[in-house]
């Protein structure tokens, strides 16, 4: 394999890796705020794509359809927290995790009922020939995926570092009781975290639909990969989570190059198991939490 070919695989890996990173950030945020793993996170990805197709079909311009889909999914995330999870807050984490699995099934079935069983697609954001990056042809849509990922991660970093809400989120992820003693409304932090997590998942779903198409059942697979990426990053800080996503994307892509495409989807499961067995705190994690 020559250098250009290798680079081609790296580009492909970073493309799917960005998507995994966005989905993984959703897992990390919700875990930080509530201590639960939200297995409906993949459905937020699905809703982002499917709703964007639907809004676009109503005649909305593509960017507006995308924003509407992300906003609608964020509201669905918030509603999910308030309706399904908040009242059960005192239940054990296991119960809450099972509620998220139930929520995922409901969202999936409704999506199939409302938007049909077929593959759905969107036009590329800026149609045109591939762009040459260091001798490798890169689809324009891949550049959009990267660009939107970078913007989302920077916004999130700004939120965490510079705003009162972000500080409250970090405080919650360290100690719920201490956060409450400081006057932080932890229920509100949980709700907002679900909203942002849903928006991140939806953004990924919207951005990647022109490349891969989407459908009502697109959430499960991406959910597993996002979860594996989040675990790889240690479920803790957002930077580690993003790196976890990119590493997972690269591993997958290089496994296609050096092993066989047959095993591409197995990689994330293998990564998940290896990390959980060998290094449960993730690549960069130092702390351990007792929950789940």
């Amino acid at each position: 394999m020559d250098a250009a070919e290798f680079f081609q695989y790296v580009i492909a890996g970073l493309k799917s890796g960005s998507i995994y990173a966005l989905v993984a950030l959703g897992f990390t945020m919700v875990y930080g705020a509530t201590g639960i793993i939200n297995f409906a996170q993949g459905e937020f990805f699905m809703l982002g794509g499917v709703l964007a197709v639907w809004f676009h079909g109503l005649g909305l311009p593509l960017p507006v359809a995308g924003i509407a889909a992300v906003a609608a999914t964020a509201l669905i995330g918030i509603a999910f927290e308030r309706v399904a999870l908040r009242r059960q807050r005192s239940a054990s984490p296991l119960v809450l995790v099972i509620i998220t699995i139930g929520g995922s099934m409901v969202m999936k079935s409704l999506a199939r009922h409302l938007f049909g069983p077929d593959e759905l697609s969107l036009p590329e954001f800026t149609p045109g020939p591939s762009v040459d990056v260091a001798g490798v042809a890169v689809e324009r849509q891949a550049l959009w995926v990267w660009g939107l990922t970078i913007v989302a991660v920077l916004l999130l970093a700004w939120l965490y570092r510079r705003t009162k809400l972000g500080r409250a989120m970090r405080a919650c992820s360290i100690s719920h009781d201490a956060a409450r003693l400081m006057g932080i409304d932890t229920a509100r932090v949980a709700m907002v975290s679900f909203g942002i997590a849903a928006a991140l998942g939806a953004l990924a779903g919207f951005a990647v639909t022109p490349l891969t198409q989407t459908s009502w059942d697109a959430g499960a697979a991406i959910g597993v990969k996002g979860f594996a990426a989040a675990i790889l990053g240690g479920l803790g800080n957002p930077v580690a989570t993003v790196i976890g996503g990119l590493v997972l994307g690269l591993l997958e892509s290089l496994s296609v190059a050096f092993v066989s495409s047959t095993y591409k989807d197995v990689i994330s499961l293998v990564v998940l198991l290896v990390v959980l067995f060998v290094r449960p705190q993730g690549l960069f994690g130092t702390a351990q939490r007792g929950k789940v």
Partner: peptide, 26 residues
């Protein structure tokens, strides 16, 4: 009414200034 809890319950990974800022959350 503010409690200084047993074991202190600081936000360990956050800086001294950030801990004080969270103290002013209200």
């Amino acid at each position: 009414l503010a409690l200084v809890p047993e074991g202190r319950m600081l936000f360990g990974p956050l800086t001294v200034d950030e801990n004080l800022a969270i103290g002013a959350h209200t």
